[in-house]
């Protein structure tokens, strides 16, 4: 599909979702190791969060229908929240998907999970040459989520705080220990 000028979000041809986000990165590890880093709590906690954020704990049950709860906070204290969701697909080491039902316990006054249409995160790991893995992550369902939330009195406040916190961080990853 042709993309629109002036910042029209690209339509995800797979999902038909005009407002999905797809990011792709090659990592220097096998799919097995990358998959483990995405699903084993001790490993998730070690890296979770963009630059300027860190995770204190993760409670993960990686099987279809299993739940995930991952803590994340800005290291300067400006944000703290818990991502909550449910796994749909768990196919080591190539495919992982979950619905995010809740993203911001840190701002409960802005947020009611019961009123929030979940968004969907799908992660595909593809082995490539040199023992590396191409990770493709698609986050979709914003359209339903935002519109449903608007009818119920403001969904956007929930992700909004997280998104703003992320937007104010430097874009390069900080070294982790």
């Amino acid at each position: 599909m042709a993309s629109l000028a002036d910042g029209m979000p690209a339509t995800d041809t797979a999902t038909g979702d005009p407002l999905s986000v797809r990011v792709r990165k090659t990592v220097n590890a096998s799919p097995e190791r990358a998959f483990a880093a995405l699903t084993e709590p001790d490993l998730v906690v070690a890296w979770w969060g963009p630059a300027g954020f860190a995770s204190d704990w993760a409670d993960i049950d990686p099987r279809p229908g299993g739940t995930l709860r991952i803590h994340m906070a800005a290291t300067d204290g400006s944000y703290e929240g818990v991502l909550r969701g449910t796994y749909l697909t768990v196919e080591p080491p190539t495919r992982l998907s979950f619905r995010i039902a809740d993203h911001c316990n840190g701002a409960p006054e802005l947020f009611d999970a019961a009123k929030m249409a979940p968004t969907l995160v799908e992660i595909v790991l593809r082995p490539i040459d040199g023992g590396r893995t191409e990770i493709t992550l698609t986050h979709s369902g914003f359209q339903d989520a935002v519109v449903a939330g608007a009818h119920e009195g403001g969904w956007s406040g929930a992700f909004e705080k997280l998104a703003q916190a992320v937007a104010t961080r430097p874009s390069s990853p900080s070294p982790r220990t």
Partner: peptide, 20 residues
């Protein structure tokens, strides 16, 4: 609005890559 989520996930994959 959508691109802020893009920034979030790009940051996540950068952190994952650095960890690996």
């Amino acid at each position: 609005w959508v691109n802020r989520y893009r920034a979030f996930w790009e940051g996540q994959l950068d952190s994952l890559g650095a960890f690996l």
